[in-house]
Nucleic acid binder design. Structure first.
Length: 313
DNA sequence: TTCCGACAGTGGGGTCGCAAT
DNA sequence: ATTGCGACCCCACTATCGGAA
């Protein structure tokens, strides 16, 4: 059986690359999974190389039926919602039931007959992968991840309008390279909007604060919307920390919805500051996921901050 | 010289399992 | 029964450093 190889990782960029022989795939929101398959023997590894075959056993069983020889696959395990989008929260729930209702979108082939083909160009590896999976993937849960060869910008626009997470651009001529690099780029649809700063989480470390607590007005009530703890420079941390202290107050300005564990050490603030925040999506509880701080909006009064209608830019 | 990639360190939302309360 | 914690998953970012381009 082929052994684990550290996966290639994409670098987040703002713009779709042009020129230079790129191919474009839709970005899935799931768990990265590399699979070593040899006949009925299957091992599925996480990004860091842990063996998660048991958690994904439904997929492992499907891989075992493909009758592959010494193959190493790279792809993403996802849960598809009713519209066919990959849903991260469904995935997290789906894992409880042993990996049923999960799909495996395979996008790269790293070894065949126990021999590494990582030095072959991506376009060639994908062609081999496609023919390998041709008979297999018809009804799932194993799928070949297709791509387009041009006009990534148009693809991004279409993908965002349909509510997906974004796209991945890959150099078609590049060999497989472990670790983060410029050979693979991710461009996210991303959401961005203003939030009222309603408080902060104190830091265990040597920082003015760990994260900002966010809120949004909904029908006159200020509701908790999660935290943001990254995106600040050293200067911003200091300056924001000082302003928060000046606005500090004893009672929470939000009406509710703050998880116990967070409310326990939360420090509250008069709702006055407005933060611009980017995030990938809202969780089932209406909290921002993968949020990063972009800056303060000094021009916006806090009372005007409510949910913006979800729409692609 | 400039840029890139690796690393360390900080932060988030989740799930799970186990130990302490 | 509830709570807390760490180890995993998904990540985000800043800051630094050495070597490649």
């Amino acid at each position: 059986m082929p052994h684990f190889v550290k996966p290639a990782l994409a670098t987040l960029v703002d713009d779709v690359p042009s020129g230079g022989n790129w191919l474009f795939e839709t970005k899935f929101d799931g768990y990265r999974a590399l699979s070593a398959v040899s006949g009925s023997k299957v091992r599925i590894y996480t990004r860091s190389g842990l063996d998660w075959t048991d958690r994904f056993h439904a997929i492992a069983d499907a891989l075992a039926e493909l009758d592959l020889r010494g193959v190493l696959l790279d792809g993403e395990v996802v849960a598809l919602d009713s519209a066919g989008r990959s849903s991260f929260s469904d995935l997290q729930k789906g894992l409880r039931s042993g990996g049923k209702n999960l799909s495996y979108f395979v996008f790269d082939l790293l070894a065949v007959r126990n021999k590494s083909i990582r030095s072959e160009p991506l376009s060639k590896r994908k062609a081999r992968l496609k023919s390998l999976l041709k008979e297999a993937g018809r009804e799932g849960p194993i799928f070949y991840t297709d791509h387009v060869n041009q006009d990534g910008a148009a693809m991004l626009e279409m993908v965002c309008r349909s509510g997906y997470e974004g796209i991945i651009a890959k150099r078609a001529s590049a060999r497989y390279r472990s670790g983060r690099g410029r050979i693979w780029l991710k461009i996210k649809c991303g959401h961005e909007q203003e939030f009222v700063v309603v408080g902060w989480s104190p830091s265990q470390k040597n920082r003015p604060f760990a994260s900002l607590l966010l809120g949004v007005y909904e029908k006159g009530d200020l509701q908790y919307a999660g935290r943001v703890g990254t995106g600040f420079s050293q200067d911003e941390l200091q300056q924001l920390g000082a302003r928060l202290n000046r606005l500090s107050r004893r009672t929470p300005p939000v009406t509710g919805g703050v998880p116990r564990a967070i409310a326990k050490d939360a420090r509250w603030v008069t709702p006055q500051l407005v933060a611009q925040v980017a995030f990938t999506e809202l969780t089932a509880d209406g909290l921002v996921r993968q949020a990063r701080f972009l800056g303060l909006r000094e021009d916006k009064p806090a009372e005007n901050v409510s949910w913006e209608e979800s729409e692609a830019e």
